[in-house]
Simulated scan of single mutants.
Amino acid sequence: MSPVSSEERRAAVLGSPIEHSLSPVLHRAAYAALGLRAWSYDRFEVTEDTLPAFIERLDPSWAGLSLTMPLKRAVIPLLDEMSATAASVEAVNTVVLTPDGRRIGDNTDIPGLIAALRERGVDSVGSAAVLGAGATASSALAALARVCTGPVTAYVRGPARAAEMRGWGERLGVEVRTADWADAAEALRAPLVIATTPAGATDELAAEVPDRPCTLFDVLYDPWPTALAARWSARGGDVLGGLDLLVHQAVLQVEQMTGVPAAPLDVMRKAGEQVLAGR
């Protein structure tokens, strides 16, 4: 696919709920900076039930899809091919639609998370903690497989979630230990803490942040900062937020969907920051 074309090319983010997604802001900023005037990027409210019909209606002008919850696993049966990265966590956040009609799934959350950490100088840690479970937590474990040299402790609610996280650890080659959410304050002393929980879930931990925390990666971006991130930063710790992850994974999406060799990371980040500042 040529990175610059006069033919209309379409892409979009799908999910539910979707109205607050920053993906259109980031992708449109990239298209403008790259001179892709015939490209458009929209958002659509799509559920697991309506996803098959939506995909079947796509015409040849479509180049790709970004997927958020609850579609990252629901899309898998609808694909023709899936990358090893996506298969490793059974989660797809990117679908590239080829000119011959094939649907190729990938996961840019994992390399995006790694790139965001490395941008902050976090190339290797001896241990880490993950707050929460689910698709984002499994992607965090996949990233930690390349960043963490020792054990990862996952703090979760209930034995089923604990078993799930241990299973992902075995599959991904990560030594995963599990602990009850009631003991989550212990996680805050780890060299790297990745919070994958919904808004408000970690607010109760803000008062427990130690005097000299290390690095927190909180995957939320709205509202921002979370209570935990604000307290962490006030205590002198290094904080990465959901925008860091969103921008780095979106860079990879733009490159895959358009064929450009390098998407404009700084332009995309600035566009996201401007929108969040106005919320």
Rank of each mutant, 00 (worst) to 15 (best):
D180L: 06
F217M: 10
R157I: 13
T178L: 06
E19K: 14
T226I: 09
D266I: 07
A135C: 07
A33S: 12
V75N: 03
A128D: 01
A133Q: 13
D109I: 05
E56V: 11
S88G: 03
S61V: 13
D109R: 02
R37L: 12
A87Q: 07
L36I: 11
D123Q: 14
G150S: 08
P60R: 12
S2G: 12
A201K: 15
E45V: 11
A229E: 02
R37Y: 09
L245N: 05
L117Y: 02
A230N: 11
D218W: 13
V122S: 04
A84K: 15
A29H: 04
A140G: 10
R9T: 00
L34F: 01
L228C: 14
A129G: 03
P159L: 13
G126W: 09
A263D: 01
F54I: 00
K72H: 08
W168G: 00
G15A: 09
P210A: 06
A53M: 12
A84E: 15
D123C: 13
E7A: 14
M268V: 08
T50D: 12
G105A: 08
A140L: 01
P225G: 03
A160S: 14
R157M: 01
M165C: 11
V193F: 04
E204L: 14
L97E: 02
E255S: 07
V267N: 07
A185Y: 05
D100R: 08
R103T: 10
V46F: 00
T197A: 11
P17E: 07
E170W: 07
V152Q: 06
R28I: 10
V75D: 10
T47F: 12
P77E: 13
G101F: 14
P60A: 03
G259C: 03
A129Y: 03
L131T: 01
A87D: 06
R166L: 04
K72P: 02
P70T: 00
Y221R: 04
A230V: 07
G167F: 01
Y221S: 05
G278I: 06
A163S: 15
L79G: 02
A128W: 05
A11Y: 09
G241T: 09
A185T: 11
V209S: 04
L131C: 03
I114M: 10
A38M: 11
G126P: 05
L172R: 00
E19C: 10
A115M: 03
P52G: 07
L265H: 15
A116D: 02
